[in-house]
Structures are given as structure tokens and as C-alpha cells.
Amino acid sequence: MDDLDLYGRRLSSRLLLGTAQYPSPACLEHAVRAARSEIVTVSLRRESGGPSGGQPFWKLVQGLGCRILPNTAGCHTVKDAVTTAHMARELFDTPWIKLEVIGDDDTLRPDVFGLVEAARILCVEGFEVFPYTTDDLGVAGRLLDAGCRVLMPWAAPIGSGRGLTDPYALRTLRAHFPDVPLIVDAGIGLPSQAAAAMEMGYDAVLLNTAVARAGDPVRMAAAFAAAVGAGRSAWLAGPMGERDMASPSTPVMGLAQWT
């Protein structure tokens, strides 16, 4: 079995989905089925408007039968993110938290200093932190030092659909941390880009906008599931790598020379 291990939880799906921006909750449900996702993220702040329990939308999300990864989307300070994480633990009864500390509103670029600080606090408190970070190698190291056991580097800014803007940085991360589960989070727009991340050896892909805002979200979810599967198989199969010279797949030695 080719399982993904996240904080001791074994999962067979390598495609995580966000739950925002779908035309309707019914459409979200069909998309999650089509993607065969086992983990969905939920934004506490954006979707709730306040910490009142038993929200019908959350019940709906809980009814999807997936593991829930609550996130701190929209938090701009360490305090805000930590408070939201506490709220999430209570509401969803999970130690999992996708940690976002936003540093810039236009690009939704993570504030990596705040991120490391919040990660340290939450890890000490027993949370299992999934930090949404950049592809910066140094920051990745600090997050691991802080106690994170999973990293979620971006491919491009959230919702931009620009794909893997710096493949070199992503490869470097993979090479430096071969044993840490790495999930590309944010910036994926097309299934081919998700496949490319998986071919590099990334463990999983997390997306939302690319599916939710597609003309047909359910069909796009299925397309992403197929791409992530293909990319994973390619990685496991061992890609041949590039070379400078052509190398014929059929030997030419001994062929009759007519020309």
C-alpha cells in the first residue's frame, strides 16, 4: 500500500481539498466524492463570522466523511492565529491545524516570522501543525525546529492558479527533507501542475480555487484526482531524468544502411 502518513494518520488519497467558493454545498459534496479526498480544509474565520458552535455549514462539511483540517485563513497576527486554532480544536475536536499567518493582503504571502512563532506556541500546546509557508528552505528548517512534522509550501500565491512558479526551490526542499511529508498548498491551477508537483516527489497537493471556480467543479475534481495519481505513480516508477544527447530507443547497430 502506498499510504500517506500525516502525524500518524494513514491516508490513501493524496489530494486535499478546500471547501470555500463552491456554487453550493451540494456541489462541494459531489466534488469531494469525485476527488476521492480524505481530508478537507475548513476556514473558521472566513466562513463563520464568529465562534458560535453548531454551524450548519460545518455540520455539512463534517457530513462529508473526510478528516477535517481546520485552517486559520485570514489571520494576520500570531495571537489571532493561535486563538483561531484554539477555537478550531474545540469545534472540530481535532489537534490538526493548518496554520496561516498572512503577511500581505495582496499576495496573501505568509508572514514567515509570525508563522514560526505561532507554530512553536501551538506545537508546545500539543497541536499537530500543518504550516502554510513559502518555498524558503531556511524557513522550512525553522518550522521543523518549532515542532512541525509536515510542511506545506506554496507553489504560487493563493487562488492565483499560476502553477509551480519556482520548481527549483520546490526540488531543493524535497531534496533537503526527504523524510518530511511535503504538501504543495496554494497556487495550483491545472491538473498538469498538480501532476508535476507529484512527479517531483511531493507527497500530496492541496487546492481549492482550481476546483471550486472551475466551470464544472465536479469534473475538475476528478481530473485533479487522476493527475495526482499519475504524478505519484510516475515518482514511484522513477522518472528517467533528462540528458543532453539523443538516445534511440531501438538499437541502430547492425541496421542496413540504404542512404
Binding site: 472566513r46 466562513e47 463563520s48 463570522g49 464568529g50 458560535s52 454551524q55 450548519p56 455549514f57 460545518w58
Partner: peptide
């Protein structure tokens, strides 16, 4: 559009 029944 906020997924909440809260009328505050």
C-alpha cells in the same frame, strides 16, 4: 456571503 445563521 458568510456560512453562518448568525444575525448579529
Amino acid at each position: 456571503t458568510v456560512e453562518s445563521p448568525d444575525g448579529h
